[in-house]
């Protein structure tokens, strides 16, 4: 992955208020992209357990999917600053409680289509082999964004 893309991604995320609200930051090591959600009290859903909010985890995964689509599409010559991919339909399985620690998301584009792309995302905390949630869904990647 080029450093340009990593930088563009960082710039793009810094301009998305919702990404700032969740506190998420991209991390690019070599060719691997990981989205990081540092622990924040604001992302708690159940303060008694405590556990992260399912919606915060969901939003985090949607962002990871969108970022991965931007990266993959840039690699195939698409302008990464063009229209942002939009979710069409997503399905989230919650596998374990989101503990109050840093979370990581990694996405894979299963099918890159002209208009619609299919993406899978996993979120984990300390152990990548113990995901806390998984998402799969379709995203609109048509150039006209319609």
């Amino acid at each position: 992955m080029s450093e340009t893309i990593a930088k563009q991604l960082e710039d793009a995320l810094s301009k998305i208020p919702y990404a700032q609200t969740l506190g998420i930051v991209p991390r690019v090591i070599g060719d691997e992209f990981t989205l990081v959600m540092p622990y924040s009290d604001d992302n708690i859903g159940n303060p008694v357990l405590p556990a992260l909010h399912g919606g915060a985890i969901g939003g985090f995964m949607e962002m990871a999917a969108i970022c991965q689509l931007i990266i993959d599409r840039a690699a195939s010559g698409h302008d990464p600053t063009a229209e942002l991919p939009k979710p069409i339909g997503i399905n989230i399985d919650y596998l374990r409680r989101g503990r109050p620690v840093e979370s990581y998301a990694r996405a894979t584009v299963f099918k890159a289509g002209k208009r619609v792309s299919n993406v899978r995302v996993e979120v984990w905390q300390d152990d990548p082999d113990k995901p806390i949630a998984a998402l799969h869904g379709h995203f609109l990647t048509a150039d006209d964004g319609k």
């Binding site: 998305i16 919702y18 919606g55 939003g59 985090f60 997503i90």
Partner: peptide, 27 residues
């Protein structure tokens, strides 16, 4: 709210904000 915007150009709320609201309402 501006803090929930997902697209800084169109000012449309992020899908994640809608996800959170639906999750909370369903819960």
């Amino acid at each position: 709210s501006d803090a929930l915007i997902g697209n800084p150009v169109t000012k449309v709320l992020h899908g994640g904000a809608v996800t959170s609201l639906l999750d909370q309402a369903c819960g």
